[in-house]
Structure formats: structure tokens, C-alpha cells
Amino acid sequence: MKIAVWDTYVTKKDGSVMHFDILAPEEIKDTTVIYGYGKAYLKTKGQDGQPLTSKECRFCHVETLRPNWDADIKKQGYFIIEMENCN
């Protein structure tokens, strides 16, 4: 399976910037779905309500599915790779 990587930078409520990647099956092209995944993730981090649009989240590239992503993608449709300031 091929996985699309969406590079995402969201300004947190404290003004710092979170950087994370949203990974989803390549066939999902609807940005509303991708942004929904990002918003669900933000909610788990206490950052619900923060803007997540094409300004914050852009398609980056396609990768081959890795085993450690598989369970989350099957369960919730996506996987998040935390890069910076995600705590």
C-alpha cells in the first residue's frame, strides 16, 4: 500500500508551532478528510479549535506503508508522525 504524507504546521494555543505529518492511504485525496484527521489528532493534544487548512497542511510525498503504521491506519484511517513541539 502507498501512503500519502501531509506535512503539517499548526500554531498552538501558546503561540509555538507544532510540526507533524499526517499519513493516510494515497487514494484519499479529499483534503476535508485529511484535515479531519489532523483536527482529531489536535484534540488529543489539547489543541482543538486551532486552524488546520491548506495554509497549515500540504501534501508532501508518497511512501510505502511501514509495518508500524499499519495498525493505526487500519483502525482510524491515518497515522501521525510527531516531529516538533507535539507535547
Rank of each mutant, 00 (worst) to 15 (best):
V5R: 06
E84F: 13
K74H: 00
I81E: 05
A40L: 09
G46L: 06
I81T: 04
G15P: 04
D70S: 14
A40C: 05
D7N: 15
A71D: 00
D30R: 13
M18A: 08
F79T: 06
I34P: 01
D72E: 15
N68T: 05
Y37P: 06
Q76H: 07
N85S: 13
T11K: 15
G49Y: 06
E82L: 06
G49H: 10
K13E: 01
A40S: 12
A24G: 09
E26N: 01
K2S: 13
Y78M: 03
E84N: 08
W6Y: 15
T11N: 13
T31D: 15
G38Y: 10
P25Y: 11
T44Y: 15
D21K: 12
C86F: 01
T64E: 10
T53I: 00
I34V: 12
E84K: 14
Y9T: 05
T32F: 13
L52Q: 06
G49E: 07
V17N: 14
I34N: 06
K39P: 02
L42T: 02
D30G: 12
T44Q: 13
W6L: 01
E63K: 09
R58Y: 01
P67E: 00
N85V: 03
E84V: 10
F79P: 08
E84C: 12
Q47A: 09
G77C: 07
R58I: 03
Y78F: 13
G49C: 14
L52Y: 08
K43V: 09
M83Q: 13
F59M: 04
G38M: 05
G49M: 09
K45V: 02
M83S: 10
Q50S: 08
Q50H: 00
E84I: 05
K39S: 08
N85K: 11
F20D: 00
I22H: 02
E27P: 06
F59C: 14
V62W: 06
E84T: 12
N87C: 01
L42N: 07
V33D: 04
K39V: 11
T32Y: 09
